[in-house]
Amino acid sequence: MSAEVSEPPDYITPAVRAIIGAEAPPIEAPHAVEASEVRRFHQALMDASPRFWDPEAAARYGGPVAPIGFPVHAMRRMEDAPDPLDALQAGDHDGVDRRLRPGLPEVQVPLQRLVNGGYAYELFRYAHPGERIRLRSRYVDIYQRNGRTGPMIFVVIEDTYETVRGEPLLRSTNTIILR
């Protein structure tokens, strides 16, 4: 790198480094998986597998199931939670919550653009209508890479989804990029 190009600041400050490994208290979905919710999901996915509604087709699983990735969307808005659409009244708000996960400390980095880099899933079991889902989240790693377009902060979050009875559903490793 030539001398006149200034190195971007190191955003991984001691305060940022201190939250690596931080774990959120377990949170439970505000309601159990609903059959109609499952129907809207598989129809919006245009996935017509009968395991989502037919008890015979779903015999291996002990009855109809939600799509295998469903738990990722189960942490819905509580009945009395503030309306997320209120934030849209501020004209330039993009509609995305900057708290990466409820209960995890904020990543204190002055970069506004957020990109979802992707997921690595490990799948164990389908969720059934009537089951309530619990989530545990933690920061696995936070690191910086300086690309040609500027600095990027990679935030790696592990999310473990299980039923409230403790049956593992899936584990997700999500990489979020701040730039």
């Binding site: 996915l45 996935d47 597998s49 690595a120 799948l123």
Partner: peptide, 19 residues
Amino acid sequence: IQLVADWVGDTGWAWKIAF
């Protein structure tokens, strides 16, 4: 995910999927 789940059907298991 559906791509992999459809291929393994109800007799195999889609253990890991990353993208």
